[in-house]
Each structure stands twice: as C-alpha cells, then as structure tokens.
Amino acid sequence: MIQEDKLIERAQEGDQEAFCLLARSYQRRIYALALHYTRDPHEAEDLSQEVWLKAYQAIGGFRGEAGFYTWLRRITVNTFLNHQRAMKTMYSSGKKAFRLGELVSLDELGLAPAEPRQAPEERLQQQMMVEKVMEGLGELTPQQRLIFLLKHREGMTYDEIARSCAVSTGTVKKALFRAINRLREYLGVKLSAAEDVSYAARERR
C-alpha cells in the first residue's frame, strides 16, 4: 500500500490518480457528513464531490503542518458553510423533510440498508427510523446541524468548532443541546426511563 504522504506529493504534482487514491481513504467519512448535513443522498454526493474538487485545487498549498484529514476537514466545513449561504435563497420553506419517497430512491443509488437478507418489514422499519433521524436533524438550522456533526461524528472540541464556524463556544454548546433534544424527541427516547427506549429496532433484536 502506498503511503499517504507519497500520494499527497504525487497529487501536488498534478497526478490525478494519486489524488483519487487519496480520496478513496476518506470518501465515506466525508460523504457521511454530507449526508447528515444535507439529509439528501443526491445533494450529499454533490456536496462531498465538491469538497474533493476544492481539495484537488488546493492541494498544492498543503504544507503538512497538520494532518491531511484535518486539512481536508477544514475544506469540508468551509464548503458546507458556503453551501449554507448559497442555499439561503432556496431555503424558503425553512425545513426540508426527508420523505419516504426519497428513501425508496436510495435503492436506485445503491443506498439500501446494509443487510440485504432483512425482511421487507424490517427494512421498512429501519427506513422509518432513518426518516425520523433525518427529520430530527431537519428541525435544526444548518449551522446547528453542522456543529452537532462536527462534535459527535468528528469529535472536534468546542474551541475547534467555534473557530471553524466563527461562533462562540456558548453557541456551540447551545446548538449541541438543541440537537440532542431534537433527536431525543424524534427518536422517542423517554426522559423518565431512558432504558425503556421506544426504539422499535431494539425490540426486534
């Protein structure tokens, strides 16, 4: 396996193949972020590929002071924030629902749930849970969503997130609190007895 720094070096010299190999290592992670951020598989693909295009254009400036993924994540956050600004005009209805119809189209894209041997009811149940999660995320503003994803999925610190999103740490905490409450609400996690989560999928197991 070729080392990452060799691939970076070759990509900096304009080797597209090396860049694609580099992208392969992180594409799932970037795509997952984009999917939860946009809540739409088509948009997630567009946005994640935009990240890669920007990274390709900027790789000449990568000096290796931070890790490659840290650098890439900075590009990702900036791309997401730009996307958020660009969506301002189109964001007229405020909240975008992740509908079951769209989930059906996941199959066409090869986005079906990971276990092909599942019974149709189970798959439907799982799809409904995904829908609930996406609706819960949809209740948040794009910035809150991004903050939540950067914290929970990426494990960034409050300070790192605050710097990346140009907000205060107080805003970060507030966004996280709101995010977790929305998720709790949409996933039906009860306050009084968290152990009795009404999560249908759990009962199945």
Binding site: R28, L106, L109, L111, Q126, V130, I180, R184, A194, V197
Partner: peptide
C-alpha cells in the same frame, strides 16, 4: 441517560443510512 441513549440510537440508525459497497465504484 436519555441524552446518551439518543446519541447511541442516532449512531445505530445513521449507520444503516450509509450506502452499500456497490455504490462506491460509481461514486469514484
């Protein structure tokens, strides 16, 4: 507990929303 549970369920659910392996060659 409800907070940690919500995050746990979130992780579990969102993992299933990820595309399967056959999607990635096309993506590349």
């Amino acid at each position: 507990r409800s907070m940690t549970e919500a995050l746990r369920v979130f992780d579990q659910v969102t993992d299933t929303a990820m595309p399967e392996e056959s999607y990635w060659p096309g993506y590349e």
